[in-house]
Design a protein around this nucleic acid. Structure first.
Lengths: 204, 204
DNA sequence: GTTGACTTATGACAGTGTGTCATCTATAGT
DNA sequence: ACTATAGATGACACACTGTCATAAGTCAAC
């Protein structure tokens, strides 16, 4: 987590710093990113950076969490829009995330995040799908879901459904970007797999 | 790929080098690993390392590919053992991989690989499941599969079934290790999700 | 056994980046 | 004006990487 000093910064300076960090993390992955570049780009001395953040990762996860928050809100909105249909909600998120990562420019950030997704990053990316968060926000999510459309016996299993959906969704996001699929190709592959998930892989 | 010089090395020296690399990549992730440690551990001068490998990644992926090869062979064996039942075959792989990564000692390598899985590593880890490899090894895999147990209309869809299974399997491996689940807990969660995959997430 | 062509080995070195710390500056309360 | 507290700064020590000039080894041909 950023240090208090970071939050005490005036709006303008904080914005400059955030932009500089985003720029660097859009250029390369977390591991290839260099603090020196952020310093150069933000025009601040080395010592200042360490006044605001623990290290490179700290700044990275600050940005990532902001994004995760946004996406989670979109997911909830989607659930409302699609009358609790999780599959529609998640497909829309897939499409939306892909579009954002295709519109090059500033936001190669998401692209780099996806291409270098490891467990820490995935955890931050999907923190609202963890068992703990789900229990904490029971109402928020559970009330919006159309349960009768799901093949599950008890509410507890929603966790597993979400785990599967997020695993397949992320796999497809990463696969699409690393194989440079067009949005059309990517969505087409994704929809095939979501349909397989819905009807089941095994024969009855 | 390692340079020719590496393969020209005599058995003994190559083994020492491999062990040194494995040791370092068992200690920390690819990104935190230091060539200097490998040099120290293998007792070779700096220049020599670059005679054999392009860089750190080169050595890492050499080790990883060896492992992937082994695992793929186990998958094929499993398909035979379980009469073409993909779900059984993959569950056994899951269990086996988890066990290897739990038996600490030398082989924290797999653990570190799983915890720091990004798209490049995943690609190397699952290279036998890519569209190209599947087509190349059509007979090898396709003949072993029990098709009538699968809910798919044409053979082409096997690719998607494998994509889903590998996404969920890797997600569970990473999840189990990063959350330090016991093997029992991990297998239990995995089996619930595999069952959900088999019967389908949606209600009919 | 000497020569020459080629392969391999070596470690000093330049370059790049990180995190720290002693010191300086700003700010606010009294 | 004084002091305490928070913030800013950049020089520095340390770690690691990749390269390159030079040395050493191998081997076939003469």
């Amino acid at each position: 987590m950023p240090k208090p000093t970071f939050y005490n910064l005036n709006e303008q300076k904080r914005e400059i710093l955030i932009e500089a960090a985003k720029k660097e993390f859009s250029r390369v992955s977390l591991y290839d990113a260099s603090i020196s570049n952020i310093l150069k780009s933000a025009g601040i001395p080395r010592g200042s950076f360490y006044q605001y953040f623990e290290d490179k990762e700290d700044a990275f996860f600050y940005l990532l969490n902001e994004h995760t928050q946004e996406r989670h809100e979109k997911f909830l909105t989607n659930l409302k829009t699609f009358n609790g249909d999780i599959f529609e909600a998640v497909t829309d998120i897939f499409h939306h995330t892909l579009q954002r990562s295709h519109s090059q420019g500033q936001n190669n950030f998401i692209k780099n995040v996806l291409l270098n997704m490891n467990y820490k990053i995935e955890k931050a990316f999907t923190k609202f799908l963890s068992k703990e968060e789900l229990n904490k926000r029971y109402d928020e999510v559970f009330d919006l879901v159309d349960w009768k459309s799901l093949n599950i016996s008890d509410e507890h299993q929603l966790y597993h459904v979400l785990q599967i959906l997020s695993a397949v969704t992320f796999h497809n996001l990463v696969h699409s970007i690393s194989n440079e699929l067009s949005i059309g190709e990517a969505v087409s592959k994704y929809k095939i797999e979501i349909d397989l998930l819905k009807t089941g892989l095994a024969n009855k």
